[in-house]
Design a protein around this nucleic acid. Structure first.
Lengths: 111, 111
DNA sequence: TTAACTATCTAAACAGATTATACACTTACC
DNA sequence: GGTAAGTGTATAATCTGTTTAGATAGTTAA
């Protein structure tokens, strides 16, 4: 993003988990998915996605397998684990509560 | 916070600016103010506040003066500058848009 | 006199994100 | 035949904001 680069920070994992909770996917697709949904305000760098994947695999939140790559570049797919689903549920609840509170703290009396 | 420590990240400045937009204040008070409004979900460490102040003063977002400290510990007050008000308005608008989009990306089809 | 609270401050470490770079294959166009 | 645009993965180095941990010091109440 041109400015406000930290918007996504801390939520990347949650968003990846949400996408994978709806079906297996791979880095490039997830990245496109987020940028598309970001409406020009939110951006993700591929490096962010891939480092998140690595971290999340180490944490047992997802597993990975190579796609058969018929006629095209190889794709590494990611699948959410039960632990990943659990964490997503927690993070989702946390976001719902936190965003309400954050809104209050940021907007304050400046309604 | 026990978990989810990054919730505030990137918003600390905006919240400080919001508080100062409603009147001069000092570190300890601002910190209390945020923790109180945080409803147990959001926490700020004093170091976060003071490092933010330093950064923000360097960026011309606020000015500072010592309180007269009659009967009590000395207090360093902070006053928002016009540049600070400008940035607050921008960040506020950004938050309003970003939180809506973030909500969409985090919740997705898991309504 | 001790505990709890008010109040400010800094150095070092940490975590997640970005920048920059590399590699490689496919499709469409000229 | 060449090349540009798009698809796709990956890592090292750097940046930034926050946390951890520590220091200092005055006030109030038990």
């Amino acid at each position: 993003m041109a400015h406000g680069g930290d918007i996504l920070r801390g939520h990347t994992e949650t968003i990846i988990l949400r996408i994978l909770s709806e079906g297996d996917s791979y880095g490039y697709e997830i990245s496109k998915n987020i940028i598309e949904g970001g409406e020009g305000v939110i951006d993700v760098k591929d490096a962010t996605i891939y480092t998140a994947f690595k971290r999340m695999e180490e944490d047992g939140l997802l597993t990975t397998y190579w796609g058969d790559g018929v006629g095209g570049a190889r794709r590494r797919y990611y699948k959410i684990t039960p632990k990943g689903r659990e964490l997503y549920a927690e993070k989702l609840a946390e976001w719902k509560k936190a965003s309400r509170i954050l809104d209050k703290l940021i907007v304050g009396g400046n309604k």
